[in-house]
Amino acid sequence: MGITTRFTKLTLATIGAFALSSSIALADADDNELVIEGMKMTTMVEGAEDGPVDEVYSGWRFRSEETQALETDDFENPAFSAVDRGKELWTTVTGSEGKSCASCHDKAEDTMKGVRASMPKWDKATSKPITLEQQINRCRKDRLGAEKIKFDNADMLAMTSYIGLQSRGMPVNVDTSGPMSEWAEKGKKIYYTRVGQLDMSCANCHEDNYGKRIRADHLSQGQINGFPTYRLKWNGLGSVHRRFKGCMKNIRAKPYKVGGDEFVALELYVASRGQGLSVETPAVRN
């Protein structure tokens, strides 16, 4: 309930910021501080000197007070039923080999710490970056003898949110060096390419116009530090690739394939734009 009074004060500040917004080119992330279950999150970091933005903001800073509040308390966060399911799946034997995740990885709290923060990462076996979903499927197929599941399958989202939670509060830290640099470049190219009949690139909204209203929506920088994210609009959790797909459709473009090279490259590049932000998985957005 303490949250309510704090937010009332902040609401006034936010209204003030909106009144000014037409005269300020880039502004409008609010000044609220994100504390989840007593743990302070980093929702803003200074951009790199040669980086695309001066300040890097988590999408949380662009959401309404009501939506923001949902993420501060795990009992209020609607993603936590999936997290509970993920915890259950972690120790559930599945597939032909009679194993569960825990058979090899023991306690997720220890072994999965930091994993979300550094995905996608280089995969020697395929000589490509690998996403968290793809790594889970690799384990399912090779270790458990279980079938692969889709990125937005309920069990996959339960696993990615449970595993991701183990990195909550840790800074995003993806590797874009060595063989990864080529993929980051590929992702960057996609980021700046105009697509669809409406002829827009990711950058047109999320770099040039973040902080502004587009109809009812408040444009963020499109950071992905909270994925999988519970979107109120979806009434459920979704993967980064699902979000990319939705954006492309809005621009009347044919989305790339979920799990395909283009979206993996884009995920890597967009993650790299958010280096240093806290992992917020599972975040809540509208």
């Binding site: 669809g196 009949q197 002829d199």
Partner: peptide, 26 residues
């Protein structure tokens, strides 16, 4: 060239335009 504004009566727009809209102006 840098404007975000769509061109409402032009056919040369972004790549990968959905079939439903390709070859059509907005």
């Amino acid at each position: 060239e840098a404007t975000i504004m769509p061109s409402f009566y032009r056919l040369e727009n972004g790549v990968r335009t959905l079939k439903k809209f390709s070859g059509k102006t907005i």
